[in-house]
Amino acid sequence: MNTLLSFRRYFLLIPIVGGMFMSSCENTVDIDIPFVKPQVTLNATLIHNTFPKVRLTYSRHILDNNWEFEPITTAEVKLTADGQSFYLDYNEESEEYISLDYMVMEGKEYTVEANVEGYDIISATEIVPNQVPIKGLVYNGKAQVDAYSTSDDITLIFDDPIGENHYEISAYYYRLNSYTDQYGNEFYYSDNQPIYLEPKNPTYESDFFSNGAVSVDDKLFEGKEARIDFFTGGNYMELDNGGEVHFVLKAVSPSYYYYRSTSGLQDWNEGDPFAQPVQVFSNIENGIGVLMTGNISSEKMETGSN
């Protein structure tokens, strides 16, 4: 009894502590991610023999519910090559800065600079690679994938120049069709669909793909003739109704390769709680995004004739 009396003051703590316990059962806390000034995003892909285009947007806070990235329309955008600079104008329709007075040329080094109010000059520099022509396309026959489907077995051949090179390889099926309506008018339409490419060599495989395009570096064939074997997603070469299978070999800058590899991997892992984070490559000074360059060569094979 004495013990109880001497500790009565402590027993008064019980309802207080009990109340605290009851109020503390919420086991989650919202984490505040500090708001920082948005960064300017500069994205541009300079392809040989095309007009330059640059798109500018602002980044958004990770918890921002607005999914749209509205273009920055009031910047001053300049392209410099061989010591000569010219300005790109904002185009309302494409929402990009473009110039129709100049075409991107292979082998040249380009610097893109964007002057956006309130920011240091945002810039990036890249060299447009020289064209690497396709030396040959060899149809090796039809491959049985499983009991129900077949694919084409095709080898792409090209000569890899000396030095570090990167490529993006893609293919598409093209067919021009026509029909005549009841009044005798002839109409033309095209059937154009990308072909998913699966390299036979697992070194060129990746977990992710960009609409069937395959990105490769030249570590396996540095400075030599490259022969890369592919299975196509579907059988096109023996289609009876004609058409063409086009292969596109795009020589790309290292930045192009690293950006596509990292952004593709980040996209592929989205929603996987056990995947490690992926930092996407950027070569933009004072901003984020990427300046990529490339040079395209293309060859086609007629279908139905094999």
Binding site: I33, P34, V36, P38, Q39, T41, N43, A44, T45, R55, T57, S59, R60, H61, I62, D64, F69, Y259, S263, V280, I288, G289, V290, M292
Partner: peptide, 8 residues
């Protein structure tokens, strides 16, 4: 900490 628009 941020999101941004990727290349086309």
């Amino acid at each position: 900490t941020q999101r941004y628009e990727g290349a086309s």
